[in-house]
Nucleic acid binder design. Structure first.
Lengths: 349, 349
DNA sequence: GCTCACGTGTGTAACGATACACCGCTAGGC
DNA sequence: GCCTAGCGGTGTATCGTTACACACGTGAGC
């Protein structure tokens, strides 16, 4: 180890004294090198090297400047989930693109789902927040709002004073649902969780208004409308809830659906991962896609094209970038993101 | 918008004045609520709400406290690459696990590869750094070292004063190479980039000492030893360098290798993604694995088991966690991570 | 010769919060 | 009735840096 653990922090004032110049000259050496003569600059740098000065203290600097040049990202209850979900990772990449471009850091905030999150959010050294889609009752959105710093929510919920970047999930679900459910007698839905407790379950005639994740609620509303348009009553539509966004779990739950009496002949999922699990389960059950069962996904990720999956195309990366720009105050606070339906062979003509 | 953009920042002193209490009482209201009476606390909170106070300023707080409770992660030249590489994402998840547990934030630093990186690293409001594997000549490791803050490098290079968390890449490459090259006449290697300019190329008798990425260099040394042990001269071993860690590019370059005169009959890759590209190319060229060509990967990710790939197993997630613990000063600075070879059907018996 | 601009150096006053020490009051033990 | 403990409140100094205003000397322009 170069510097012993016991050594105190070296300050700019000590460097200045050692170099025989004023504190301001030392400060300018780091912040506006052209402002000082070559001679003074090299004296300062030599003194800094001798004393083991590690550069201006970032906390003091941002206090004085009033900006941390860092954006905070809140990724939901279990931080590590974020890194397991490919769509969440794309979203982060979009934020990273903008941050890197603007010279901003990007802080991923540690969220545990407990009460201690609130002070952590307040205490985060960031200029603004980006909140990954969450539930209406999630206390972190209130905590973010309470900081009075600029913030953007991705997906939902809409929070007064915060921006919102999202696609129109209801319209997109209706559009893809209309295709997936066309000609079907018994449509079903593979859904993301309905509330923060994240339990897997299968039900019928689901109470949509009680769904706490706005993104999921809007998608269910769109799917419901699509089902009703083809003459199916909502009480007859199965909704299979997957606790995690994961092909394996969707496969398991889809296997249950498909081996029941009166199995579904059309399944609309809420992600391509789920849809690929559904397709595997369908193949395992000996069904032909789309004739025996039509399948649709969501996101249009890499797997969708390979599987020939009808899906909703959206760019999480672009949405991440839009959130970052909005949080930096460079674009309007709220923006509707674009989407489209990609029709492939997993649904009927 | 709740508070107009022109409004000045509200300070604790203003809140205290409005509430008719001292500044310290207001401060304790936020930091040690039990220290103040219910009456005073509610007066302070009411005043804060009226004034739109967003909580104690984090920069001021960390200046005073001498800690930011945040770890910085440096992920190599293009920040967004980090999110495209599944192994890098696992590594981040491992860091995130520890940070979330300890209540630390995790700042991903914006690195562009240009000169402006150095001040950005110095200016990062973090208590310590974790550096993702990089090249010997990468200026960011020097910049990190110059901050005098605790720092850990993952993979390499070894930097004086910084910790190092890594597997023994040389030994692991030797071990898996011995299996992949067993019985082969013309072994080849699909390699990660050899220098920071990241060009794809195919060469023979590669100069290993000039390889600037220590992880890659050590792996090549191990593979070389394995090849020489089976009686093959290094000058006869083809090395195909892939600019990016990506199945598609490995497939392209492997197709070139396999359609040449005297094609390789064993290919050791440096990631499972590369190996899966190699396998696809081999199938496309009508080869049987492992009889016509043996293939080995690296990392033992999800794809490896599916493909029956012989590979080096390591947990990037555990290594990320080890880096985080070390950067927080809770474990020794440097640690050797564990690895093993998983033998499957992609190599000869 | 006077003015003015410019390059370089300096002192002072914040930035917003918290650590620490201290103070007055009340309640309880003897 | 006195001493002590503890609760709730306060004033002051300080964390390390940078913004700002100013001071001084030099050389150009007229």
């Amino acid at each position: 180890m170069e510097s012993p653990a016991g050594s105190k922090r070296v300050t700019l004032a000590q460097v200045a004294e050692r170099a025989g110049v004023s504190v301001m000259t030392a400060s300018y050496t780091y912040n506006r090198p052209s402002r000082v003569s070559d001679q003074a600059r090299s004296k300062v740098l030599a003194a800094a090297a001798q004393l083991g000065y590690g550069g201006p203290d970032p906390s003091a600097r941002s206090l004085r400047r009033g900006s941390t040049r860092t954006l905070g990202v809140v990724m939901g209850e279990h931080l590590s989930y974020a890194f397991d979900d490919p769509q969440a990772v794309s979203f982060l990449a979009g934020i990273a693109d903008i941050c890197a471009d603007r010279g901003y850091g990007m802080t991923i905030l540690p969220i545990t789902g407990a009460a201690e999150d609130v002070p952590r959010i307040q205490g985060a050294a960031v200029d603004g927040f980006i909140v990954w889609t969450t539930s209406d009752d999630d206390p972190v959105s209130a905590a973010v709002q309470a900081t009075k710093r600029p913030a953007v929510v991705h997906g939902g919920p809409a929070v007064p004073g915060l921006g919102l970047v999202s696609i129109d999930n209801r319209a997109a679900a209706y559009a893809v649902g209309a295709i997936a459910f066309a000609g079907a007698k018994r449509p079903a839905i593979v859904s993301q969780p309905l509330s923060r407790d994240r339990i897997s379950t299968i039900m019928r005639g689901t109470d949509i208004t009680g769904v706490l994740f706005p993104v999921t609620r809007h998608r269910l509303e769109g799917y419901r409308q699509a089902a009703e348009d083809t003459g199916i009553a909502w009480r007859d539509v199965l909704v299979a809830v997957c606790a995690r966004n994961d092909a394996a779990e969707a496969e398991r739950i889809a296997a249950t659906l498909l081996t029941a009496a009166e199995p579904p002949d059309a399944i609309a999922a809420m992600s391509d991962e789920q849809a690929s699990g559904v397709i595997r389960a369908a193949h395992a059950a000996g069904r032909v896609i789309p004739d025996d069962v039509a399948v649709s996904g969501w996101d249009d990720g890499a797997a969708a094209a390979q599987l020939g999956l009808t899906t909703v195309a959206q760019s999480l990366r672009d949405q991440g970038a839009a959130c970052a720009r909005a949080a930096l105050g460079q674009t309007p606070n709220s923006q509707a993101a674009s989407w489209s339906v990609v029709r492939r062979d997993s649904t009927r003509r």
